[in-house]
């Protein structure tokens, strides 16, 4: 029993360390509950504790499930776009779905930020910022090289500023809402098959 006790204590010590970023109270609860579980399993038979520890895996790996869920719930509760975005980046390395989502939101925020940025530099470069519809087709939008718009009339004038600002802002809000839904969808129980 003494040997088992040592094994349990060493596992719990490593787990406690691995759970480092969780609030103290939560860390203690998790360890105390697992200690109770391990003790009970150790009392069953000589091999029960070994097979239990094998199922749990390394404490560092086991801790990750608690850690992930905690980080996600904090980000979701805060409603902070930056935190949610950071979570999708963190999980992007773990699954293709999270990585695809991260890239999608990265482009949405980039477009939205870009819209608001060009709106704000329009007063300083009125000739180079705007919307052009060349006769050759398509459109040229944003902050451009004047040679590419030679002979073409800008069509928005000063309306460019409110239109770009509002659409950038609306896109930002939409992307933030969507990001929240996406991060919530990442919050799934770990599946070890």
């Amino acid at each position: 029993m003494n040997g088992k006790r040592k094994v349990i204590e060493s596992y719990l010590r490593r787990l406690r360390l691995a759970l480092g970023t969780l609030p103290v109270e939560e860390r203690q609860e998790i360890c105390r509950e697992l200690e109770s579980h391990l003790d009970e399993r150790a009392g069953e038979s000589d091999t029960a504790l070994q097979s239990c520890l094998a199922e749990l895996g390394e404490p560092e790996t086991y801790a990750r499930a608690f850690h992930d869920d905690y980080e996600l719930s904090v980000a979701l509760a805060s409603g902070s776009t930056a935190r949610l975005f950071a979570q999708s980046l963190r999980l992007a390395g773990r699954s293709i779905w999270a990585a695809a989502g991260f890239l999608f939101f990265l482009s949405l925020f980039a477009i939205s930020g870009g819209l608001m940025a060009v709106a704000m530099i329009k007063p300083f470069f009125p000739q180079q910022v705007g919307l052009w519809l060349p006769t050759s087709g398509g459109f040229i939008f944003g902050f451009v090289d004047t040679t590419s718009i030679a002979g073409v009339q800008e069509i928005m004038g000063w309306w460019f500023i409110p239109v770009a600002l509002v659409s950038g802002f609306v896109l930002w809000i939409l992307a933030s809402r969507l990001l929240e839904k996406f991060v919530a969808s990442l919050r799934k129980p770990r599946d070890d098959g």
Binding site: I30, L56, R187, P189, R190
Partner: peptide, 14 residues
């Protein structure tokens, strides 16, 4: 079900 010794507590915790 995907419930094992390794997944039960993270699931309960969530």
């Amino acid at each position: 079900l995907a419930i094992s010794e390794g997944t039960i507590y993270p699931l309960l915790n969530r």
